[in-house]
Design a binder for these strands. Sequence first.
DNA 1: GTTTAATTTAAACGAGTGTTTAAATCATTA
DNA 2: TAATGATTTAAACACTCGTTTAAATTAAAC
Lengths: 211, 211
Amino acid sequence: MANQSDTKTKILDSAEKLFAERGFSETSLRLITSKAEVNLASVNYHFGSKKELIRAVLARYMDVFMPAAAAAIIQVKQQKQCASLDDIFSSLVSPLLDLNTVRTEGTLIFLQLLGRGYIESQGHLRWFITTHYGQYLTQFVHAVAESAPEIPAAEMFWRLHFTLGTVVFTMASADALTEIAAADFEEHNDIEAVIRKVIPYLSAGVSAPVG
Amino acid sequence: MANQSDTKTKILDSAEKLFAERGFSETSLRLITSKAEVNLASVNYHFGSKKELIRAVLARYMDVFMPAAAAAIIQVKQQKQCASLDDIFSSLVSPLLDLNTVRTEGTLIFLQLLGRGYIESQGHLRWFITTHYGQYLTQFVHAVAESAPEIPAAEMFWRLHFTLGTVVFTMASADALTEIAAADFEEHNDIEAVIRKVIPYLSAGVSAPVG
DNA sequence: GTTTAATTTAAACGAGTGTTTAAATCATTA
DNA sequence: TAATGATTTAAACACTCGTTTAAATTAAAC
C-alpha cells in the first residue's frame, strides 16, 4: 500500500514534466515509465489509460490553483470597490507562484500543460476542464467583465480568448524566450518576471477602446 | 509531365487542409494521400519526406504573403510620416485576406499552419522560417518599434512575442471559437471579423505604459 | 514503333504506439 | 505461518506510422 501511491506519484511527476516539454501525443508511456523507473504496465494499472493519466496530471494542479485563484479574486473585490483589470490579473500572480512551492517549477509546468491541453486535445481535455472547473471559469470571466464594463460581452469573449492565447503561448515557449532575452538584453527573466511583464499588456488589450 | 504537378498539387492541397485542422504529427501520410486520391508512396517520391512536405506546404503561403506584407508596410510608411501601431497591423490585413483568392480559405489555413508550426515543431520549421524569411521578419519588427518608440527594446521583444502568441493561438483554435461565438452571441464571425477584432487588442497591448 | 525516362502502384519493412495478459512478487490480514 | 489481496513484472498483441522496394504503367524522345 505504501508503494502504490509511491508509484502513482512517480508516474505523475515524470509525466507532467514530459507532457509540458513535448506535448501529450509526442510523449510515449514508455518514455514516462522509464524516466519514472517504474514498469510500463503500471500506468494502465493505476490510471486506466493514457487519457486518464493526462487528466490526472492536470487535475493535480487544477485542484490547487482554481480554489486559490477564486479566493484571491474574491479578496481583491472585497478590498477595492472598483477593482481594475490590473488588480484582477495581478491577484492571480501569487496563486500561480504558489504552485512553485507545491512542486519544483510548478508554475511553469502548470501553464505549459494548460497551453498544450488547449491546443492539442480536441475533445476530452476541454470537456474535462469545463465540466470540473467551469464554476471557477465563469466566476473569473464575471470578475473581468465587471472591471471593464464598457466592453460588450461578445467583444469580451474574444478578448479573453486572445488573453488566454497570449499566456498559453508565452508559457509554452517560455524556456526558449527567456534564453534569447537573456542573451540579447542581458536581463534576468524568470517566470515571475515574465508574468509581471505580461499583465500590463493583457490589461491594455482587454480594455482597449472598441473599434 | 502533366500528371506530376497535378499529383503534387493534390497532395499539397490535401495536406495543408489536414495539417491546419489537426496539426502536423496528428496527420498521417495515409490520410493525406487517401483524401487526395493519390498513392501513398507519391509523397516520398515528390517531396522526399514528411518534413519536406510540411515545409513545402508552408512555403507555398510564405512566398506569397511575405513579399506582399513587406510591400504593404513600406507603402504605409510612405503615406504617413508617423504610422501608428494600428496602421502597421492594419496594413497586414489585405495581404492576409488576399490569400483567400489564392486558395479557398487560404487566410485561415495559413494562420493555422503558422500557429501549428510555431507550437509543434521544436526545430526544423522554426529554422526554416527564420532562415528563409528572416529579412521580412526583422523588417516588420523595425516598423513596429518605430511606431512605438517609447517602448524599450527589451520590453518590445516580449510584447511582440505576446502578440505572436495571441495571433497564433487564436487562429489555431479559430474554428472552435467562431462556432462558440456564433452560438452564444448570434454574431457572424468569419476570419476577417476576427482579424479586425484582434488588431485594437494588439495595438493597445504593445503600446501599453511600461510598469 | 521502339527505347528511354518519369511516374504510379501494391506490397512489405522495421520501428514505435497504447493496451492486455498471466505469472511473479510483495504486503496485509487471519 | 498460511492465505488473501494488491502490486509489479516481462512478454506479447494488435495497430499505426513513415519509408523503401521493385514491378507495372504512363509519357516523352528518338
